[in-house]
Simulated assay, not measured.
Amino acid sequence: MDLSTQYLGLTLPSPVVASAGPYNAEVANLLKLEAQGAGAVVLPSVFEEQVQRDQEILDALVDHGAESTGEALSFFPSHITEGFDTARQLTLVEEASKALSIPVIASLNGITDSGWIDYAREFEAAGAAAIELNIFLIPSEPGITGAQVEARYEAVVRAVASAVSIPVAVKIGPYFSSPGAMAQQLVGAGAKGLVLFNRFYQPDINPATLGIEPSLRLSSRHESRLPLLWIGVLAGRVPASLAATTGVETADDVVKFLLAGADVVMTTSAILRHGVEHMGTLVEGLREWLGARGVESPDAIRGRLSHRLIKNPEAYERANYIRVLQGYQRH
Results as ranks from 00 to 15, higher is better:
residue 259 L to Q: 08
residue 269 S to P: 04
residue 89 Q to A: 11
residue 126 A to K: 04
residue 288 E to Q: 14
residue 70 G to T: 12
residue 244 A to L: 00
residue 271 I to A: 05
residue 255 V to K: 05
residue 179 P to I: 08
residue 4 S to P: 00
residue 121 R to N: 13
residue 71 E to T: 09
residue 178 S to W: 05
residue 171 K to H: 12
residue 322 I to C: 00
residue 274 H to K: 10
residue 254 V to G: 03
residue 286 L to F: 07
residue 100 L to P: 01
residue 309 L to G: 00
residue 116 W to L: 07
residue 307 H to S: 06
residue 309 L to W: 09
residue 300 A to I: 05
residue 23 Y to R: 14
residue 69 T to F: 10
residue 21 G to C: 13
residue 71 E to D: 12
residue 67 E to Y: 08
residue 79 H to V: 13
residue 76 F to M: 12
residue 32 K to R: 15
residue 291 G to F: 00
residue 90 L to E: 02
residue 150 E to K: 13
residue 241 S to T: 03
residue 201 Y to K: 09
residue 37 G to K: 06
residue 305 L to Y: 11
residue 144 I to G: 04
residue 250 T to F: 04
residue 263 D to E: 05
residue 227 P to A: 10
residue 262 A to C: 04
residue 148 Q to S: 15
residue 249 E to F: 06
residue 188 G to V: 13
residue 31 L to D: 02
residue 158 R to Q: 14
residue 325 L to G: 08
residue 120 A to I: 08
residue 148 Q to F: 08
residue 130 A to F: 02
residue 171 K to D: 08
residue 213 E to T: 15
residue 230 W to I: 05
residue 176 F to L: 09
residue 23 Y to K: 07
residue 95 E to V: 02
residue 99 A to G: 03
residue 321 Y to N: 01
residue 304 R to W: 05
residue 47 F to V: 10
residue 17 V to M: 04
residue 46 V to M: 15
residue 251 A to Q: 07
residue 318 R to M: 09
residue 177 S to K: 14
residue 220 S to R: 15
residue 148 Q to A: 15
residue 171 K to P: 04
residue 23 Y to L: 15
residue 109 N to C: 14
residue 307 H to Q: 11
